[in-house]
């Protein structure tokens, strides 16, 4: 009977992986809540933010097989959180539209969804657009050498700030400054701001 409750050798690594993954996603809770709150335009304590953050972490946990080897988890989870939040926004907008048809003429409600441009491409989609790739490539080549190296080392090679600092022989603060400035320059060159 006890043996039935014990995990098999094949199951054990999977469960351990699951636990480790769950611990990692749990560490991202602050990050996910911040992303969801930013997309929804709500405070982090809002129940909708809580629901979406929970849903995003659940989807990340269930879909962990899709995370490729060597792919950093944080941007991947950020993408899931953004999608979940956008889905929630669209659902709310559809619900609001349905309600509005039953109450025609009452357009005085200051619903923040009125300001949500969810039909247009998101910042992510705009950067994914093939026409933008050339712009990004040009923006990268126009960056000062240090900024370009730091940004590509972080996003392409998956190096941490300290590894980049060691490779380039510069202080940690310089790496952080380069990454931040390079990112803002590239984003500005394709017309994306932090408020997009």
């Amino acid at each position: 009977m006890i043996s039935l409750l014990m995990p098999t050798a094949a199951e054990l690594p999977t469960r351990l992986d699951e636990r480790a993954f769950a611990a990692q996603t749990g560490e991202l809770r602050l990050h996910v809540r911040a992303v969801v709150a930013a997309v929804l335009g709500l405070g982090r304590d809002h129940p909708d933010v809580d629901d979406c953050a929970h849903e995003a972490l659940r989807r990340a946990l269930e879909g962990r097989e899709r995370l490729r080897d060597g792919e950093p988890m944080r941007p991947w989870v950020t993408g899931i959180a953004r999608h979940v939040a956008l889905d929630a926004l669209r659902a709310r907008k559809r619900q609001r539209d349905r309600t509005a048809t039953t109450r025609e003429g009452d357009d005085s409600s200051p619903d923040p969804l009125d300001r949500v441009a969810d039909t247009g491409p998101s910042a992510f989609d705009r950067l994914s657009d093939a026409r933008r790739l050339d712009q990004i490539a040009r923006a990268l080549s126009a960056l000062p050498e240090g900024q370009r190296k730091a940004l590509t080392m972080f996003h392409m090679e998956g190096l941490q700030y300290q590894e980049i600092a060691a490779r380039l022989g510069v202080p940690l603060g310089t790496v952080a400054t380069w990454v931040m400035r390079a990112r803002k320059s590239v984003a500005a060159s394709v017309g994306v701001s932090e408020d997009s």
């Binding site: 953004r82 990112r183 932090e194």
Partner: peptide, 10 residues
């Protein structure tokens, strides 16, 4: 969000 957008583009 900006980091994710730029990172995926790069």
């Amino acid at each position: 969000l900006l980091a994710e957008a730029v990172g995926s583009g790069v």
